[in-house]
Amino acid sequence: MLLLLHDKLAVAGLIIILVFIFVSIAAPLLVGSYPTQFERTTALQPPSSAHPFGTDWQGFDVLKLVVYGGRVSLLIGFTSSLVAMLLGTTVGLVAGYYGRVTDQLLSRATDFFLVIPWLPFVLILVAILGSTLPTIIFAIAIVSWPTTARIIRSQVLTVKERQFIERARAVGSGNGFILRKHILPNVMPLVWAEAVLTISSAVFTEAFLSFFGLGWRGPGAVESWGQIANEAYTNLALLRGLWLYFAPPGIFITLVVLGFAMLGYGLEEVLNPALRRRR
């Protein structure tokens, strides 16, 4: 893990992520509570001292919306990644350990989900299931797990040939026990690296989903960065010259995606033996 600190890219990524997590958690302290219907002012105002980024189509302060938007993007990123990791790790472990027909079936399924175009697939799923928080998380997880499954599977293939596995089998350990106690701990570091990379792609996917108008809706919903960008787009913010309404959400999406990607690649290079040679 200390090796990671030598990787400037990974450290920069970590700093970006920590800043965004801090801002999201401290949002009420920084900009006050989430705007309600009573706080409406004139819609689509240009930037002023009261509203540094101007106001949105409903008359809410754009800065406030953008600060709160990070909460949704990060929440969906983290939870989708968690679900995708559970799915991907399980499939990878089972496929790699049991081999034969099980492996064939699971690997074909993995390849299949790896190749299908993710955006139309997510759009269809959410359009049919509805834009609630659980369905969005589920849909993003469905397109995010295959890479992990593939990487974990190939790692399991090498781990299961090692001598301590044979020893465990010789003293009478069952398959489930070996998988849990011997193989999982050995692939776990890679799962962490993949989890970070998956958060990056999940935040990205959520942004597209929201931009297509399929973001989180319903009581208690907070607008994500993708939704703010979508509203700025549909309200012709750029044609009105209100670029501070449209630009910030996109910049923040880029920074968060980039931050997680840099940390993830750094972790992967440190933790994946196949990549270490490159350093």
Partner: peptide, 12 residues
């Protein structure tokens, strides 16, 4: 470039 959402890049 890879981290930027394409809808944002195109509109900018």
């Amino acid at each position: 470039g890879y981290s930027m959402p394409s809808f944002w890049v195109s509109l900018m």
